[in-house]
Each structure stands twice: as C-alpha cells, then as structure tokens.
Amino acid sequence: MESKPLEEILREHPFLEGFKPEHIRKMAEMALEVQFGRDQIIFREGQESGLFFLILSGKVALEVSAPGRILRVQTLEAGEELGWSSVLGEGGKHFQARSLETVRALAFEGARLRQACEQDPSFGYALMRQLLRVVAERLQATRLQLLDLYAPRAAKLI
C-alpha cells in the first residue's frame, strides 16, 4: 500500500467514487500523506486547522468537551472523511478529533481545494456533491442520535 501511487489510493477511497480521472489527478496533486500516532489530537474544537482528511486506515474519534467530561459523538474509520468544514473555510472546527489508534490519511488544504473548485467548476461540482453527501449522512445520523432512541422514554422529546 505504501508504494501505491497516490492516484490509485485515491481511486479506491469511497469519497472519490464517480470522480473523473482528471479530477482524481487534481486531488492527487493536492494530497499530502499524513500519519498520527495513537491518542494524538488531530485538531481541537474551535481551531482553524484548514485541513480536510480522507482516512486510509485507523480510527478517529470526534469529541466535544463539557465541564468535567469529554463526550465522544462519532468515530470515523478507513474510507471516511474528516474535517469537512475545512473545505468551506469558514470558522473553526466543530469538534475535537483524536486518533484512537495509528491513523493514516491523506490531507488536503481547504484553501487549495476551494481555489481548485473555482478554477474548474466541473471539479468543484464533483467535490461539492460528494461533500454534500457526507454532510447529509452526518446530519441524518445526528438527527437519529438526537432522538435518543434507546432512552427510557424514547422519542418523548415534546
């Protein structure tokens, strides 16, 4: 896997499913391979990290801290995306991200991705469409989570 060219690695990642070869090439040009050790903070809540990651292996927990405790609200694994808000480039990170084990990922600078989108609207459309899918999945999962389905008084929100 280490020796695989970036383009090939990217082609296998579900995020780029349906991307045209030239769009995958463009992504490969912007990608940077990164690795995090176990229990490393990848970014903190509120931080303007500016990086968007495609996870290749390992597990990342999204955390939110409350007085006296830290709550894990989602874990992301190989084939998933981390830091989607960086692509929008507005404000800081919504959650803290922590590697639960050694994590390999491809990192992309949000500013460069935005620039590429503006220069090539067809690439931009492909990227935004996939990003929208990710955001929609997260939104739906969050709503289910909010319903607190297994709570003693399930679904009695109002």
């Binding site: 597990k59 405790r69 709550l71 609200v73 874990t75 999945e137 289910l144 989570q145 389905l149 297994y150």
Partner: peptide, 16 residues
C-alpha cells in the same frame, strides 16, 4: 450513540 473517553469502540448510530 455516545461514548466517554474510556470507550475506544465505534461511536455513532447503528446506520453509520
């Protein structure tokens, strides 16, 4: 659906 710091397993609704 929700994990604490000691939970190293998956967090997220079952559909995830």
């Amino acid at each position: 659906d929700y994990g604490g710091l000691s939970w190293r397993g998956h967090v997220g609704v079952v559909t995830t």
